[in-house]
Design a protein around this nucleic acid. Structure first.
Lengths: 338, 338
DNA sequence: CCCACGAATCGAAACGTTTCGACAAACATC
DNA sequence: GATGTTTGTCGAAACGTTTCGATTCGTGGG
């Protein structure tokens, strides 16, 4: 396998000239550059990664720690992992995947052996030991999600409170005065990520601000549980006419089936908005209005912030990505008499 | 950050002695080793990864290419990715995650820059360009799944044919003479991985060998489609009394619901076996007998073979992992009159 | 005509390891 | 007591880059 010396010899220049020609960090004469380019192609030269890491100050690798908790929704998790890898490539970075059972030891290992330039932390929970560790290690890092104590850390996440508020606003603006939020199973709110809590709080707060009735119900993903939870809010007085669902894909489908099962139509009898899903709600029957959680957005920003920490200093911050609303026709005015 | 020179100075030895003490490749005096160990702890020394890669012959990194096709079942996919990462750690290897849109370029890049020692290829399809590329690059690699042309490649996979045959045997041994296989959607059999085909062929062949009736039906994952497919085999003459399901999690659940919906019981009216799932069928109602596809098994073996290719040569091969059967009470003798 | 300056190139020193060969000392063999 | 072997340690040469400071050469200004 050719190295830089081979290229230099074939092009008839010194290795430093080759290096500068390839990096563009110093001006190189026209003819010389052409000769070097030709030599590179002829030898199929590609710089050796280890040599580069050693001489340069960068390894061009980020570590990614992505715990798979029992209550993690695999498709969303996978989407985030891939989004990080894809975003990293845009900055010419590769991603080293740490295993969950080596979460802290792995972080320690790759950062103190200088194998990675920084760390992307996925699915941060409220009391996340990885947050503490990252702070202690002083390694460039970007967390996706917000830990209980975010001091000194760079965090990125969807603005779940604003997303919930946006959903409330849409429903209230359409004329609804009795809303309900169907959320994740209880265990998710107790320990785990704090975004479900933030969504719930945003929902309840904005509903209060707008002066409308609001109920919050948690549900498991089994269709019977979903039916029961739905009945709870539809049979209440006053019955909910606007529904926000913040849960995984199966729950959305179960909700739509249960609604149809009751002989109700969307949005005729019930307006429905999907809150912060990573999946596609436009293919549902009926398609659902949605405030999407787009992994690529959050992950791209996180990678960007990680890269920026390497040169020029980025102040610690919690950066919340503004939510967007996409209409698919599942929200309408409530029926006059209801 | 301390380096090996610091350790040597503190311990009062040369750097080569430190290196040998840490690697254990040459005998080191008792007192000397203790001094070195003390110095390492005192300085919190950890060898620099780049220096190691450059001087040694190994980078201790494997690349993992794991394409996410539209018909990929995310939870299974994720399970395999994590299983590879976990298995790699057992051999002191880290895993670099390549993105799908950079599948071939990425492989080329990381192997010719010598960033990785080898490649693990996940979810290999029949005409997989990655298989060709790996062959052409001559890089140590282990494929999980079997490409159309496996010449010169090291492949590992569950023995899907044997798994299907095992399911048939169990049902026939229990007295069933009319079997059905509920498989993946049609698109999966046309282009994509070849394991669904292998499972189907194993099923049909063994049924023929045992002289029993066998039907194969593909189904989409929507409950209505599943119901229709199920009706197809239960209303046929002779009606199937033994059912093998080789599909994703939702299909299994839909099958059980549909069976219950028809007023049938498992295994009273219908014996059911789950074929090669990655999820847990023992928590279903009722729990299903299963021939599991265990990502850890396949992935551990693949990593092992990749490691072995680095020293001592491993002959190209297709290594099929023998299936195992786990009873959960969903198979019984058919009802006498049926 | 001399000087300063920029452009283009080179040589050499780093980066932090591993590993080969050498060497001294201790020890066993006959 | 000479000879060979093992044990423990060291020095130095790789490994393949990047990058800092020269050096050379032409060019335009005074």
């Amino acid at each position: 396998m050719a190295n830089i010396h081979d290229v230099a010899r074939v092009a008839g220049v010194s290795i430093s000239t080759v290096s500068y020609a390839l990096s563009g960090k110093r001006p190189i004469g026209e003819k010389t550059r052409l000769r070097i380019d030709a030599a590179v192609r002829e030898l199929d030269y590609m710089p050796n990664a280890a040599g580069r890491m050693l001489a340069g100050t960068r390894t061009r690798i980020f570590a990614l720690t992505a715990p798979l908790r029992s209550d993690t929704y695999a498709p969303a998790h996978m989407a985030f992992v891939l989004a990080v890898a894809t975003a990293a490539r845009k900055y010419d970075y590769d991603v080293l995947l740490l295993t969950e059972d080596e979460a802290t030891d792995g972080l320690r290992r790759v950062s103190s052996s200088r194998l990675v330039d920084g760390i992307i932390v996925l699915d941060v929970s409220i009391n996340d030991e990885r947050a503490e560790l990252v702070r202690a290690l002083g390694v460039p890092a970007a967390l996706i999600g917000v830990p209980g104590n975010a001091d000194g850390l760079v965090c990125v996440d969807l603005d779940f409170e604003a997303a919930a508020a946006l959903a409330v606003d849409r429903l209230v603006d359409a004329g609804h005065t009795s809303l309900a939020l169907l959320g994740h199973p209880g265990v998710v709110y107790e320990r785990g990520s704090n975004f479900p809590t933030r969504f719930r709080d945003g929902f309840l707060r904005r509903a209060a601000e707008r002066g409308v009735t609001a109920r919050f119900t948690m549900t498991e993903k089994d269709p019977p549980e979903v039916r029961a939870a739905l009945s709870g809010v539809l049979d209440a007085v006053p019955a909910a006419t606007g529904l926000v669902v913040h849960a995984e894909e199966g729950v959305h489908k179960a909700v739509l089936e249960a609604v149809a099962g009751r002989g109700l139509s969307v949005p005729g009898d019930l307006s429905v908005i999907a809150g912060a899903p990573t999946f596609d709600t436009s293919a549902f029957t009926p398609p659902l209005d949605v405030i999407p959680l787009i992994p690529a957005d959050t992950c791209t920003r996180a990678v960007e912030l990680a890269v920026q920490q390497l040169d020029g200093t980025v102040a610690p911050r919690v950066e919340l990505v503004a939510p967007t609303y996409r209409e698919h026709g599942s929200v309408a005015a409530p029926r006059p008499g209801s």
